[in-house]
């Protein structure tokens, strides 16, 4: 029962938090650039407006253009349900297992790639191809880094991993954990199409990865694609923040604890968002064919983390 409540709270909170996070990220960036910025509620306004438009679809686009965005949103919402964000009380039959989480995320990745191909344009296919190449190369890093986290906890269930770190905080600064965290962060940057892998603010088609796939979508189709990506970013940042700073997460259900959990995860995600935004100021997008090198580097770190945790501890 408490698992259901926490899951519900997580979904509602992140549906609210994800656009806010994007607003904060954009606002911080605008402030640093010397602009006034559109305010942290702008993504909400964008969404409301997109839902109030009459979408345009090409005659050649199939049902994928309609279903794909929904699949992306559902996969991101499932991430919000299953990840240990507000609380670490998992469902008995579908725990927040690492491999299940990654596969659910991949549903969204696939949906987006197919939407990109569906329009039958050059740009959509290009974005889709690049997106899938990056996704394929990210997966080893993603799995290995969380594998490294899982070794001290003795299980691949993310909520147990977070709980273990809460109980023995010295794990957080162990070299294994630091290496794995760096690797995981790079993997997540690649997965959520942030700098230096992709430039989320670009308007130039040839440099696009993520954006190129959405060029054909409009109105509510576009809205779901945007929400899905935002939710994914927010949920993954939430996971990272709980791995770095597990304090505040609910382990035993109580109303007060839930309140603390909600506030703490919101603060953690937003702070991480600000850090991300500030960090991105100092980064330039790397060339597409240097991305594999970056990912190989992160893979090497994750791999070192795993072997080190096997052989050192």
């Amino acid at each position: 029962m408490s698992a259901i409540i926490i899951a519900l709270v997580q979904v509602v909170l992140f549906v609210f938090l994800a656009p806010l996070l994007m607003g904060v990220i954009r606002q911080v960036r605008a402030t640093i650039e010397g602009r006034a910025g559109a305010g942290i509620w702008q993504p909400w306004r964008d969404l409301r407006k997109l839902l109030a438009k009459n979408p345009v679809r090409g005659t050649d686009s199939s049902w994928m253009l309609r279903v794909g965005p929904v699949a992306l949103v559902v996969s991101s919402l499932l991430l919000c349900v299953l990840l240990p964000l507000v609380g670490t009380i998992p469902f008995a039959l579908i725990p927040s297992d690492l491999f299940v989480i990654v596969s659910i995320m991949l549903i969204g990745v696939v949906a987006l790639a197919l939407v990109g191909l569906d329009g039958g344009t050059a740009f959509g296919g290009m974005g889709s191809s690049r997106h899938m190449t990056v996704a394929a190369l990210v997966e080893p890093t993603l799995l290995l880094s969380v594998y490294a986290f899982s070794i001290p906890a003795g299980t691949s269930t993310l909520s147990v991993i977070v709980e273990t770190r809460l109980l023995s905080p010295e794990l957080i600064i162990s070299p294994v954990s630091v290496l794995a965290l760096v690797a995981l962060s790079i993997a997540i940057m690649a997965e959520t199409a942030r700098l230096p892998i992709d430039n989320p603010g670009t308007h130039l088609e040839v440099t696009m990865l993520h954006e190129a796939m959405t060029l054909e979508a409009s109105g509510r189709d576009l809205a779901w694609l945007e929400v899905g990506s935002w939710l994914k970013l927010a949920a993954l940042l939430g996971l990272v923040s709980n791995l770095i700073v597990p304090w505040g997460i609910v382990t035993d259900f109580s109303t007060l604890g839930l309140l603390i959990g909600v506030v703490s995860i919101a603060v953690k995600v937003l702070v991480l968002g600000v850090l991300l935004s500030v960090g991105e100021i100092f980064l330039a997008k790397v060339r597409l064919f240097q991305v594999p090198e970056l990912l190989a580097g992160s893979f090497a770190l994750a791999f070192l983390a795993v072997t080190a945790s096997y052989l050192v501890a």
Binding site: R35, A36, H203, E216
Partner: peptide
């Protein structure tokens, strides 16, 4: 001039 502060943003596709 920063017209983005009023909520206007350039987009890469007329669909958007």
């Amino acid at each position: 001039y920063d017209v983005e502060r009023y909520g206007a943003r350039l987009v890469p596709s007329p669909r958007h």
